[in-house]
Every structure is written in C-alpha cells, then in structure tokens.
C-alpha cells in the first residue's frame, strides 16, 4: 500500500473550513483513503460496481443513498470486515495504520453486556498492547464522551444514546486514523441525535481523524460533513462539497439549499455526474460562501 496524500478532485476547501491537518490532536494520524474500481458482489447480486473515491486525510465525508444501495457494504470493505472482488482500497500505509487504526462504529452499539462500561471501552485497545495503561486510556475516552462517572456500571442500565456514546468512546480510545460510522444515530430520538452529532463533530475536530459517515438523514450529512457522496446503482452518483464554515448553524438557508440539491440527486432527478464532480461554480451555491 502506498502513502496517499492527494486531495480529492471534488474537494475545494472553503475560506473558513478547518485546515486539513493530517496529524490529529488525539495522537493518531489521519489516514487518507483511495478506492479504485472497487467491485463487490454477493452471489449473483453485484452491489458495488466500480467505486472510485479519494478521501483526503482528515476529511469528514458523508455517504447517502437508498436503502440497500451498498453503503454498509462499502464501510465493511473500508474496515476490512469483507474483501473486495476487484479494485484496490488504499488506506494510508501500513505503519500509519498500525499507529492509528481504522475503526468502524456500527448501527447498534454492540457492547459486551457482561463487561462493565470501562472494560467495554478497553475492547477498543485489543491487540494494541496498551497494557496497564488501558484502564486510564479508557477512562479518558469515556470522559471525552461525557460518561466518565458511569465507568463502573453495566451496559444494560444505559440509555440507547449513552450506549452509542460508549461505542464511540471504544472507537476513539485507540486514536483512529479513519473512523467509519454506519448510521450510528439511526435508532436515536431527534434530540439525542442532535447531541450525538455535536459530540461527533467535536471529537472529530479535536482528534482530526478521517471520518466516513453513512446516514439516511441528508440534514445530518449537511450539518456534519465537508463533502457528501451520493451512492446509486453501485457507483458514486454525485459528489457535493459542503462549504459551510464551522460551527454550523442548523437550518440556515445555505444548508437548506445544499440539502435540497442532495435530496434531488438522491431521488435521481438531477443530472448525474459521472465521477461525482460537481464544480463549486456550478449549480450548487458553494463557491461564494455563506449568506447567513
């Protein structure tokens, strides 16, 4: 695997967007990702038919698409839970991956019910030889998600949102270089979702990993991501840059315009770009900066 520091063609950093530093605050180094012609089939069903995607280190990418279009499949490939039938996936280089690994946050928290909260977070350090430090690191990660005082409890007493925060702490404890999130907020109520979104944005800003978020909620994608990729028919159907400065205001006209555009592309109405290139000076109001 090669070191890949190139910047995606579709990505144009805005004047106020966070500088793309490859080195995170949390000690891990953000990993760049490059997918070339990635194909994945299950039996006769070809789910991904040639995905080309370059994600610069430290970018927050959101993936949206119809149910069953292969978003989870793509994330599982990134996390190494499955292997592609064709094409190549390059995620940083081996040395950097060893230091700051790829982590996947599932739709369900997947906590071990028989392990206390802190022990669950320590699972994130499996095979990383953290030794006696593990407990302290886990405690620190729990503090980052605001659950430090619950460390000694069983998962069964936590609420759904709290369980997801523990799962987030478990993913963060090893200072990931790439964090893939597979609709982690899908099962949460609206208010808890907003809180979790803020939390995810905060830890991403602090730790500076590359983030790939799969979501059904275009509003969520617009609120969090630097860039939104629409997956359709097993390929990248659109690639939209979200150049709204952070911290972002919910429901401003700028965000609404981008959200409307992504939704149109999702529904297949707008003209589809081949390799997901949407010029910032094109139909999207991304070039001139926010109006709010």
């Amino acid at each position: 695997m090669t070191v890949d520091t190139s910047v995606a063609p579709g990505h144009v950093p805005g004047p106020l967007s966070r500088p793309m530093s490859p080195v995170g605050v949390g000690g891990g180094a953000a990993l760049p990702v490059r997918l070339q012609g990635v194909v994945k089939s299950f039996g006769t069903l070809t789910v991904l038919r040639g995905i080309d995607l370059t994600i610069p280190a430290g970018q927050f990418l959101a993936i949206v698409g119809r149910s069953g279009c292969g978003k989870s499949t793509l994330l599982r490939l990134l996390a190494g839970l499955d292997t592609a039938d064709a094409g190549t996936i390059t995620i940083g280089d081996a040395a950097r991956r060893a230091e700051s690994p790829v982590r996947l946050m599932f739709q369900e928290p997947r906590l071990l019910p028989w392990a206390r909260i802190r022990r669950n977070v320590e699972v994130g350090l499996s095979g990383r030889g953290a030794g006696p430090q593990a407990g302290a690191l886990a405690q620190e990660a729990l503090a980052r998600v605001g659950l430090a005082e619950r460390a000694g409890e069983w998962p069964s007493v936590l609420s759904g949102g709290q369980k997801q925060r523990v799962a987030l702490a478990r993913a963060l404890v090893s200072s990931p270089g790439l964090l893939a999130l597979d609709e982690p907020l899908g099962a949460l109520d609206a208010l808890t979702r907003l809180e979790m979104q803020e939390l995810i944005e905060r830890v991403w800003t602090a730790q500076g990993f590359t983030a790939v978020l799969v979501t059904h909620d275009v509003g969520e994608a617009v609120a969090l991501a630097d860039r939104i990729v629409v997956l359709d028919g097993g390929a990248v159907a659109a690639d939209v840059t979200v150049d709204i400065p952070r911290p972002r205001q919910r429901g401003d006209a700028w965000a609404a315009a981008i959200e409307g555009d992504v939704l149109r592309r999702l529904l297949g109405g707008a003209s589809q770009t081949t390799n997901g290139l949407v010029s910032p000076s094109g139909a999207l109001p991304v070039a001139t900066g926010p109006q709010a």
């Binding site: 996390a79 190494g80 839970l81 599932f106 699972v123 994130g124 499996s126 095979g127 478990r170």
Partner: peptide, 11 residues
Amino acid sequence: HLIEMAGAYGM
C-alpha cells in the same frame, strides 16, 4: 454481531 465487533477490533 459481538463476535464480528471483537474481530473488527483485532481481538
């Protein structure tokens, strides 16, 4: 799911 999670975390 738990077994898969453990595998993903390199247990």
